[in-house]
């Protein structure tokens, strides 16, 4: 049976969401397995959101923000990085492969990069298979 992954992407308003828009303007194609949730800053992404998504059935979660040093709010992306690192450990403990969580920096000008990042991430999640695919006890 064919399976399409459910992937949640958090995109910060100033850089990555703009990058996603720019990908569209330039018609850079990527797989439709992702849904974008806009937040003002990647530092707004609560680790609880990520756990919630996995609990609700997401196969992958990608947090995207401004390049380090570019944050519209000075250092929100460093905060995001720290939280994602904590989540890598936590997901590992929970038995959720930590590769299912991604963190990427994409600027508003990087439409191509946005498409590439999504394509790669979707490819990775497809290779990993569904998040409950035989991983259960």
């Amino acid at each position: 049976m064919s399976w399409d992954p459910q992937i949640l992407v958090f995109a910060c308003n100033w850089c990555s969401y703009g990058g996603a828009d720019a990908a569209g303007v330039s018609r850079f194609q990527y797989p439709p397995d992702v849904q974008i949730v806009r937040v003002m800053c990647s530092g707004r992404v609560d680790p609880g959101f990520v756990l919630r998504a996995f609990n609700k059935g997401a196969d992958g979660v990608l947090v995207t923000g401004c390049h380090l040093g570019d944050c519209h709010y000075q250092d929100g992306n460093y905060k995001a990085e720290k939280r994602v690192e904590m989540l890598y450990t936590l997901l590992g403990q929970l038995g959720i492969q930590s590769e299912r969580l991604g963190l990427e920096w994409i600027s508003a000008a990087e439409g191509q990069r946005f498409a590439n990042v999504i394509t790669d991430f979707v490819g990775k999640i497809r290779r990993l298979g569904p998040a409950n695919g035989g991983e259960g006890p």
Binding site: D46, P47, G48, F49, L51, R52, F54, N55, G92, Q93, L94, G95, I96, A131, N132, E135, G136, P137
Partner: peptide
């Protein structure tokens, strides 16, 4: 704490993942 503790309990309850 962003509902993390409760969400984790629900994740365990779902039995989908083998904890480590």
């Amino acid at each position: 704490h962003g509902e993390m503790m409760q969400t984790m309990a629900r994740i365990f309850a779902s039995g989908k993942f083998k904890q480590n």
